[in-house]
Nucleic acid binder design. Structure first.
Lengths: 206, 206
DNA sequence: TAGATTGTTAATCGATTAACAATC
DNA sequence: TAGATTGTTAATCGATTAACAATC
């Protein structure tokens, strides 16, 4: 797009989206930045600045139409499209994510699961059979896979990420506890659970 | 402590910790901020500023002793202590976290699991029997529980969080997709997986 | 001692908040 | 029209980077 939106803004969008969905479900039609500000505990100024990064969604003297704003943010976040994803690593976490139905509701479609462990290959997760790693590249190419979820130990993660990079994968949702250095064309979103737990631990210690 | 450390700094500590552990395991004895800077792809300036929030860990002309720095960061993050935790919500994600052995290695000890679903109560997760929600408060008080991991749907999360607040819980690791508004004495660390996925989705869309 | 590298101050950059004119 | 509230510019605040004197 025109000028780059800062990641600080992007990080706040899902939270706006969540509140707007709730407002919408409870039948609220319009909301001012000030009301939303009280609800979300952020400044009204920030709300207006954030939304204005994407053009004017509001109307002076009225505020924002909840339904419209909800839909616009959905579009910005790419939730108006389908995203096919696979999960690599059929361990506890991988299976938990495969079974999480809410992702479907947002347009993220679970298409397949891979593992290198012969004991896991052939088992099923929500109707999908776990495939061997050898079939990874072909599957991605033939099934229009956009996102790979990495739920494998960090030892294997870097080489698997390189294999993903060599296919047409667009994004990696990385749960492996290691930094992936990939070309800028591939988006990596890290979820480092133990980092998060350590942050909590720090704050407890204070 | 003296002056408040910004959360931006705290968020970077686990990553430093991870790199230092690797350096340590590969037998590296000392490292300069510049070398670490290249490795981690952050500025050397930031590294020195970050460490100096906690006092001088380095030595002019020498750099930082890897082992010492590693231990110091562990202490800052509270990893030199044991932290007892329970998991509330014995669904896929809860069980996956209960089975994750690396937390133990860092001093986070899995002490118990709770659920309201009668079908899950009595089942075992890594040697621990899932308990009914009625026993929550007593168990927390009698077992010196510091952290509660919330892996339940958002509908129940707020009321459970209030119950946790009424016991002596110190921190909540919140995987429920809702904001918990609790007294400032209780630390809340959120892991909003779908927010993270939406961020990835946004970056793919660009 | 000379060289290296920290600790720390100063400069810059970016993000947040405040203010207010535009406008519905 | 008067009141409300946005969109947007300006001011502030905080975080990052640069620079360099202190010192090992």
């Amino acid at each position: 797009m025109e000028k780059e939106i800062s990641q600080a803004v992007i990080s706040r969008l899902p939270r706006y989206f969540r509140y707007l969905e709730e407002l919408r479900l409870s039948g609220v039609e319009r909301i001012s930045s000030q009301e939303l500000s009280k609800l979300m505990k952020v400044t009204a100024s920030q709300i207006r600045q954030d939304f204005n990064n994407f053009g004017g969604f509001g109307q002076q003297g009225y505020g924002y139409n909840v339904e419209f704003l909800y839909q616009e943010i959905a579009k910005i976040l790419g939730l108006d499209r389908k995203h096919n994803f696979i999960i690599i690593g059929a361990g506890n976490l991988g299976r938990a994510l495969g079974n999480y139905l809410n992702f479907e509701r947002r347009g993220f479609l679970f298409k397949g699961m891979f593992d290198q462990n012969p004991d896991l290959i052939g088992t099923t997760v929500r109707g999908t059979t776990v495939m061997p790693m050898e079939e990874l590249e072909d599957f991605i190419r033939n099934n229009d896979i956009e996102i790979a979820v990495l739920t494998i130990p960090k030892t294997g993660a870097v080489s698997v990420a390189d294999r993903l990079a060599s296919c047409n994968i667009r994004g990696i949702w990385n749960f492996a506890h290691v930094d992936l250095n990939l070309p800028g064309t591939i988006q990596v979103e890290n979820v480092h659970l133990s980092d998060s737990l350590m942050k909590l631990s720090y704050n407890l210690t204070e």
